[in-house]
Design a protein around this nucleic acid. Sequence first.
DNA 1: AGCACGCCGACT
DNA 2: GTCGGCGTGCTC
Length: 908
Amino acid sequence: MPQSRLHPSPSSELPVSELPIVSGTDCYEQTGQTGLWVEVLVDCPGVQGVFTYGLPVGLMVQPGDILSVPFGAQQIGGVVVRCLTALPDGTNLAQLREIDGVIARGFFPPAYWEILLRVAEYYCTPLMQVIRMALPTGLLGRSQRRIKLSQEQGTGNREQGTGGREQGTGNREQKPPLDGMPCTISTVAQQILTLLQSSKTGDYSWQYLQRQVPNAYRGLQELLKLGWVESYLQPPTPIRPKQRQAVTLINQADVALLSPRQQEVLRVLQRQGGELWLTDLLALCQTSSTTLKAIAQKGYLIIQPREVLRSESSETTVTDTPKALTKDQAIALAAIQPLAGYTSVLLHGVTGSGKTEVYLQAIAPLLDEGKSAIVLVPEIGLTPQLTDRFRARFGDRVCVYHSALSDGERYDTWRQLLTGTAQVVIGTRSAIFAPLANLGLIILDEEHDSSFKQDQPSPCYHARTVAQWRAELEQCPLILGSATPSLETWVAHQEVSNQGMANDEYRMANQGMANKRMANQEPFAISPTETLREQNSEFGIRNSPVYLSLPARVQARPMPAIEVVDMRQELGRGNRSIFSQSLQAALNHLHESGEQGILFIQRRGHSTFVSCRSCGYVVMCPHCDVSLAYHQIHAEARPVLRCHYCNYTQAHPEVCPECQSSYFKHFGSGTQRVTQALEQEFPTLRVLRFDSDTTRTKGAHRSLLTRFAQGDADLLVGTQMLTKGIDLPQVTLVGIVAADGLLHLSDYRASERTFQVLTQVAGRCGRGDRPGRVILQTYSPDHPVIAAVQQQQQYEPFVQTELEQRKLLNYPPYGRLILLKFSGLSPGVVQTTAAQVAAALQPLQEQGVERLGPAAAAIERVARRYRWQILLKVPATVAISASFLSSLRDLCPSSVSFAIDIDPLNIG
DNA sequence: AGCACGCCGACT
DNA sequence: GTCGGCGTGCTC
């Protein structure tokens, strides 16, 4: 029991010695050849290409090792690309410098390195940026400029070296200019000084000061000249495992020689199992560490630092055992289990058909074989249920890996993945880069979900695409699970006729890459990669895609009946409520019957703008071209207006700022508005709101869902979040307040997305013993998507119609899209840059690429930056060189930021 | 990113 | 005539 409170000792579960982490000095212990050079890819924005460094005597490194190197005045992170035994001609020996140290070794096994190369190339992103994204934050350290108050100011610089006790605080008061002092300092300088004096250490990072004080640069110059502050570079401190002092009992003989107090300590330690954290033992014995050190000195116990994992521990103590499978599940599992080599599997299972159980049972035997698995989910916070279930089934072998982990947690989890033990990683899209060895299976759950695509910082990768590459390189199956597969996936897993196309397209993309890489043997000349490609030029076994279907729910539960309500008729009948009569009746019944319901609202803000009914004035964000959304944070608090793009917030004006009219209200039906309407019309109904306002904090999803599951409320009101994998058996009613907002998005994927969202929401009900019912309110009941959702078994006809449209217009999956995005503070400069780039695209257009734009983005200004874009439609037969696209960057002035989004999902 | 070199406006 | 602004270019 006390032992369980300690982390398993390094020798048992976390073999530190085998981990590729070495400290700056440890690495010198490895002896070998001397006097070589290394080419290093440095982690410095605006710098690409490799730099050559000298290797300190006795130090050996290999391609893929992560280093700390001097670069200009600072120390930065870098990755070894190649080891050189001779310097190329013309190298200026004078400028060669030696590396500072090794941060980590062996992070990049060949297949993993290959993935990073492919991502860099396919998504037109500098390799270093891809590496930075894949590594835990902070691993690639860099030195930091810091500013501190000078010690010697005023009283002379005598006391510097003596190091004795200092009366620092007494001196510090003399630093600000006293009244009688001849020199006056500017307000900026005074601000900086005050800030520094307010801190305990008198020391802040330059970055922090710049953020706190506008125009900090001026003030700093002043203070530096006066000698009141000093500026210095702090060398990087790489993230390290967290250490804690542990005390272990090693000898109990001759205890009588010790003092009674010391004997007592030993007895306590023994009673606790012979091992305790130092702090715990001190607390338990009411003693000091001096006492313990004395005992240790006599050889009775040892005190040593031991690694602790910062990763969140699994709270679930429940265990879960495999469930009996339905016939369909069994067929699917039987098809998956014998797969060897790379095979892409589409598991098309209706909502509630038990896909998770298939995943679990597919993974179980792999773990026993010592293999690992990656499970990707759209958003980890939204699916505590899934994580719990995996934990309950596989216990400690489950790791959760996502971007919301703290740096320390992420680092520790990352290290644990490297140990090579069989484990299951559950995570969001970035978990596709989990450095697991010996992968046996990759699963993408809710494969159609757009959150698998990254669209903000480059690389704008799609986890599904990366998963395909990874599964192929690791020669393992890939399962794409969904009730509403994306059209891309659907087409790729259809019978031979379509399959040919998907494969050709895919191969083409890869071949273009490989060829190009041969031609310019850039940093890519890392040796493991080349070896791999030679051995495996066709990337090993590539089986035909497999389509598996789970057409029915578990335990023969029926799919919910979907009732479409025409809201125009409701209005005609004089019903001005946002709830149709049908929905009103259902809500009333809900309360009486003790069943639960979900009310789905389109989006959290979009429709709740604030405007004046007298003059029509709408409050807009001063930094973005969008209206501000109405938010009431607490029932009592004053409402605020908030921009959903830049988070600008202001108080809600009492009267219209334009015409002073007091008829100044918010409109639309956001979650808050609907909740209020519910309170008015159904005062007895207990409502729980589930949107990003109420679930902002860590663990809020889980607690809200738990409360709902416990029956604390009758109705859960929420947005898109409700569509993602929530499994609540008591829910028998789903209400969709207005499907229309989704239908009319000006996006080629609008229909597909609407179909997916509505089907997923509808699928939240009837998962328990009682059948479910869906009420879908709309102003366009005849829309084909609504019809398709209503007959949800008929996925195929809907897809066929949609595919014809896509083919006609060369949209994915028939043609590829590339979005070039420009943004900058000056609208004119952004626009002319876009135009110049457009002109440079002429050669592509001659190859048959269609160019749309340049055009201002749908929301032209976000956070004071103007945004323009160019959309390229690339026919499946045309290959585009990544280096050509990357070269467009050179046409952009530094004031315009340029981003390339390959296969964009959001093109508005 | 940081820092150096380097070219044009307000001061002794 | 200098000091000092911050605009371009380099960092092995």
